[in-house]
Amino acid sequence: MKDQDYRIFEAYITGDLESEEMEQHNKKLQEDNDYRESFELYKTLNEHLKSEFENTEDLEQFEKSVSSISSNYFERRKHPKFAWVKMTIAASIIIAIGLYFLFGEVSKPQYQEVAQIPTIHLSERGANVEVYLQAEKAFNQRQYAQAIELFDQILREDNQMHSIRLYQAIAYMETGQAENAKKLYDKIIQQKNAFSEEALWYAALNELNKEDYPACKSYLKKIKPSASRYEDATNLLNEL
């Protein structure tokens, strides 16, 4: 194929083909097998690349869910008595509730007890790979102030990186900048993207840290039963 043929294929896909060129293109499709095969594959590859790069973040989130559900499942298989552990936890919650009615309020769960800050893995997507690596390292080493600045750089390049926005919000939360964290969480939640459910959970933890229990509960109640955080949310709601 000549470069000109690929220009025609691209113009066809974007709907920019002039009528005379369209006529020639259709004629070649009928007469030239090689041309037709290249054109069909060009279209297929175009579709493939589109889905591949559009769904990168969704795929990462899916892999994370599957990996976590798989670990839980195989752990349960190894320890069939795990159910008893769960029942014991449930029983302690019931006892705690009983104590609450007998002796008044028992202590509320603390942010430090509940919050588990994830280790992040950023696959490079932009032109500046180095910034991604530095941001990942800073976050995982709990150097959150530095991570916040690096996340800012990434978001300036591409403000649609929902995962980066979520990690930046966590970094704000961990450095005591609760209001900045809240703004970011609320933005992710409103956008209803693949990270919204996770953002609801961390937004609730942010409120827990401020000891604003009603606000914390309000976020927790919005977590859907289908979300991976549902069980954690239900447990925390019970404890609150």
Binding site: D3, E10, L45
Partner: peptide, 17 residues
Amino acid sequence: ARKKKSLCVGKLTELVR
């Protein structure tokens, strides 16, 4: 950018074929 995009997808087409 447009020309280069068509050439890059074109190159990929050739590699696959």
